[in-house]
Structure formats: structure tokens, C-alpha cells
Design a protein around this nucleic acid. Structure first.
Lengths: 168, 168
DNA sequence: TATATTAGTGATCAATCAATAACTAATTTT
DNA sequence: AAAATTAGTTATTGATTGATCACTAATATA
């Protein structure tokens, strides 16, 4: 026994968790399913993540980290900033759809520490985007950021709920 | 035994469910907790709702029904329509906060038939508000409705996540 | 007053699942 | 090549919980 040690186990489990959580939600996802997708036994998951909750938090954190990075990479003049941001977001939703779905899933998980990860993620996005809007000299930056966030979230939802007419 | 029959049991259970679901989310809510809040035994719940899921759907449906009704009652000229709608929504979130919370909860429950209730609810809100915007002669009605919905949902979330700065 | 119906409960079960414990095999180190 | 460490597994369990079943008490009806 003892299959040859493959690449980074923790990373593989995180990625498998991300996929399954994004598809089935937090509560319908079992650690057995994650383990199966990662090609390991169920208990081995707990060698890398103390609890299922901790694993979910790590995955959700990655999803927020990625979107923050994407937005930070955008540099353009005030006339095209919003459009460029939207484009960055659209790229993300095709390159990493699971992470977008996970953010939606995370929005309404009532577990306190998961809520906290969502809170921090949204706060960070807001702050970063606001800074960019301001330094580009966009008027009413606060209001525009809220609208930008709001439309982004509605877009996620319309994707998650399979309800495209929400965003016409 | 057999306590005196109180008012409408089904209604009481629905209301109790609404409260507990709104507070704890779909999965963390047990039928025992709902029964306790309704002042009956746990199995009796199933005399009125075949499954926990069916009870949740009924509660969620009520929440969407109420918001649709609220918006339909708004009548004013195009210059004040959006503001009046926002006001109607704000009234609702103080008079029926549980129903607002339940809508957020419902957004990311992956169970197919619950998702369907959310879909229908959002579609109905969108259609109704769009009709009102159009007949008031608001320009870019489609776009304005999306923005209106988006900001409404963001507002729900900022309330649910206890993250007021999201809506500054 | 017998009978049927309605309202409700206690006991229990079958399934699910996160997490632990105890173990084995492979690899690395000395 | 022994010892120690790392990688991984199998077996199991303890708790939870939706749902069913069999029953009792109250009320209405004839």
C-alpha cells in the first residue's frame, strides 16, 4: 500500500473542496466526496484541515484573494476604469467559475467564522476598488463603488440561479 | 392531555419556521426547534408540511409574496418612483425583517426546488417593477431595474452580514 | 351514549457524517 | 540496517435529526 506520494496534498484537497463546495453548497458537501475527488481516503482530509469548516474557509479565502488580485491588476484612465473592472471580473468568471460560485454560497452560510471570511473579503474588495476609483478621479466614488459591487453580486446570483434575465 | 386547540396551527408553524429559518439558516434549523417555538411536538409539524423542505418553501414564498405586494402598492410619478420604492422596501425591512433575512438565506440554498422558489420570486419582482418603471415613463427602464434590484440585494446582504459600510 | 373524527403526543428508527483511533507501509535519516 | 518519520488506510463511533408509527385524549355527531 501507500500509493506514491503525489504533488502537494493540501493544495489538492483545497482544490477538490473548492469544486465540490461550489457545486453542492457547504452543507450538502461531505468530506467523503472531497476526499474521493482528491483521490485519498476520507479521514486523511483531517490531517491537513482540522475541520470541514476550516477547509471551507480556506477555499472561500482563496476565492476572495483571487478576485482582489484581479482588480488590482487593472490600470487605466477614469473613462474606462469601470469597464475594465467589469472585463476583469468577466474573465474571472470564465477562468475560475467555481470561485465565483463559492462566493455566492458563502454569502448566506450562517456559521460565524465563515461569515467573517465573507465580510473581510467584501470589505477588501470595496476598499481596493474605492481607492482605484478615487485615484482615477471618478466623481461620487463611494456611490459608484456600491453600484459596482451591487451589480457584480447580482451578476453572480444570476449566474448561480441560472436566471440570466436578471441582468438584461 | 390534548391542550385546547389554539388558532390556525398551520399558520403558527409557518410563522415559527420563518423565524427560526431566518435566524439559523436552512440547514441549522431543526424541525424540533420550529416545533418548540410553535409550542407543539416535533412530529406534529409533519401533519401540516410533508417535509422540512416544503415548510421552508412555504415560508420563502410568503416572503417574496409580501415584497411583491409592497411594491405593487406604490403609485407616484416617475420623478419619485424609485425613491418611493426604496421607501417601501425600507418599511418592509423594519416591519418584517425575518422575511428579508429569509430571502438572503434562500439565495444560496442549492436544493433545486428551493432555488426554483427564489427564481420565481426574483423574476416576479423584476417583472412588476419593470412594468411600473415603464408605465411611469422612466428612461432605460431595463437598466434601472437591474440597478434597483442589485442595490436592494446588496442592502439585504449588508444587513445580513452586519456590514453597513457596504452601502455608504 | 355509543361512534366517528380531529388534535395531538411519546417512542423510536434509519440514515448520515464529521471526526478519532489504531494501525500499516513507505521513505528518510543516522 | 536499525530507527525515526512521513504518508496513508481501515474501522469505528457518537451525535444528530428528519420522518414514521402507534397510540391517547378530546370533541363533535348521530
Amino acid at each position: 500500500m501507500g500509493m506514491p506520494k503525489k504533488g502537494n496534498r493540501k493544495e489538492e484537497i483545497l482544490e477538490a473542496g473548492l469544486e465540490v463546495f461550489a457545486e453542492l453548497g457547504y452543507y450538502n458537501t461531505t468530506t467523503a466526496l472531497i476526499a474521493e475527488k482528491a483521490g485519498i481516503s476520507q479521514p486523511y482530509v483531517f490531517k491537513f484541515f482540522k475541520t470541514k469548516e476550516e477547509l471551507f474557509e480556506a477555499a472561500l479565502d482563496r476565492a476572495y484573494e483571487r478576485i482582489v488580485q484581479s482588480f488590482q491588476k487593472v490600470h487605466t484612465d477614469s473613462a474606462h476604469l469601470v469597464d475594465a473592472m467589469i472585463e476583469a471580473y468577466e474573465e474571472l468568471s470564465t477562468s475560475h467559475p467555481n470561485e465565483i460560485a463559492l462566493q455566492v454560497i458563502g454569502l448566506s452560510v450562517p456559521e460565524a467564522s465563515i461569515k467573517e471570511v465573507t465580510r473581510r473579503g467584501l470589505q477588501r474588495i470595496r476598499k481596493d476598488v474605492l481607492d482605484q476609483f478615487k485615484s482615477a478621479g471618478i466623481a461620487n466614488a463611494n456611490y459608484e463603488v456600491s453600484t459596482f459591487l451591487a451589480r457584480g453580486i447580482l451578476c453572480n446570483l444570476s449566474f448561480f440561479l441560472d436566471l440570466p434575465e436578471l441582468m438584461k
